[in-house]
């Protein structure tokens, strides 16, 4: 049988030590700046936050990635100071923010292109028009194109295997709006993944595939994929490149990335410093993590908006 006494004492001692350990260290809270939102914008905010730590190690900057929609909800609820967004703010979100009396400022911090890709051995197609892409991706009710030879009789009589981001992603929302014409309006029988690396692998393993995802994922896997040009109407097809994405000639699949900043963050001493630092470094960081820096005009525009928000 067990000896109860010493065991019980040991157990009490263990619990006491644990409770003591938890109570220690409840000190005063340091100044913090909270960022959350789109996982697409996340790498830029992370890079900026990391660099800012070198300048002001006393300020705690945290970056989350709960998605543009989730971030906006937290932004409205006053739980975060800056919201990362891979799309422009929606009217409904502006309303909610007005109602919550949260004045904010929008800054465009980088550009991202959505790359349309096929298998490297695909030798029949070099570019597609927006109309062709729309005919492939439109909802099943509108009888989308299923086989390559339906687009062009000279192309193979094989089914187009479609790969794209999951329906919760900002990329999906942007692509469907730009191509099909209505956000989230899309056929449902494509292979979706929230992880763009899975899409890269899938497209590179299937000769009759067609997929789309952020340009950075193409740039890291140029050997495994073939990039398609996209043509608007009768215009010449344009392949995405840093220049084409920045000057928006790769339309309609180049999109701006935003941060939304609560104006009252600027009243906090470290807040203004951080936002200024962000705007200053955004271009450099965007390029470093695989996005396209905004043009000088947009950067100047950002600075003007910042000054205006600061003056209030």
């Amino acid at each position: 049988m067990t000896q109860g006494g010493p065991l019980a004492t040991q157990r009490f001692a263990f619990v006491a030590v644990c409770v003591l350990g938890a109570a220690v260290g409840c000190g005063p809270r340091a100044q913090s700046i909270k960022i959350d939102g789109s996982s697409t914008v996340y790498p830029i905010s992370e890079a900026v936050a990391e660099s800012f730590r070198g300048v002001r190690p006393d300020i705690r900057v945290t970056v989350g990635l709960s998605g543009t929609g989730g971030g906006m909800k937290k932004f409205t609820a006053g739980e975060i100071d800056i919201c990362d967004a891979s799309r422009g703010i929606k009217d409904s979100e502006v309303e909610a923010l007005t109602e919550a009396e949260v004045p904010f400022t929008e800054f465009s911090v980088a550009f991202d292109g959505i790359a349309v890709v096929v298998h490297p051995e695909n030798d029949w197609v070099d570019s597609l028009t927006v109309e062709q892409l729309a005919s492939i991706w439109r909802p099943l009710d509108d009888a989308p194109v299923k086989k390559w030879n339906e687009l062009n009789p000279a192309w193979p009589d094989e089914e187009i295997k479609l790969y794209g981001p999951g329906t919760d992603s900002g990329t999906f929302e942007y692509f469907t709006e730009a191509i099909v014409g209505e956000a989230k309006s899309c056929r449902s029988d494509f292979a979706a993944s929230e992880d763009d690396n899975v899409l890269v692998t899938s497209v590179s393993e299937d000769k009759y595939s067609l997929g789309y995802f952020g340009f950075a994922y193409y740039a890291e896997n140029t050997g495994k994929l073939k990039l398609l040009g996209v043509a608007q109407g009768e215009a010449e097809p344009v392949q995405p490149s840093v220049e084409a994405i920045r000057d928006n000639s790769y339309a309609p699949l180049s999109r701006p990335l935003f941060i939304y900043v609560r104006n009252d963050l600027l009243n906090r001493p470290a807040g203004a410093e951080f936002v200024e630092f962000y705007l200053d470094k955004a271009g450099e960081m965007a390029a470093e993590v695989g996005y396209v820096a905004v043009s000088d005009d947009v950067a100047a525009e950002n600075l003007k908006k910042y000054q205006k928000a600061l003056a209030k």
């Binding site: 260290g25 000190g27 340091a30 959350d36 996340y42 992370e46 705690r60 900057v61 945290t62 989350g64």
Partner: peptide, 12 residues
């Protein structure tokens, strides 16, 4: 709302 980037070790 756990965050992905924190540049500090939680102390409390």
């Amino acid at each position: 709302g756990a965050v992905a980037f924190v540049a500090f070790v939680p102390q409390s």
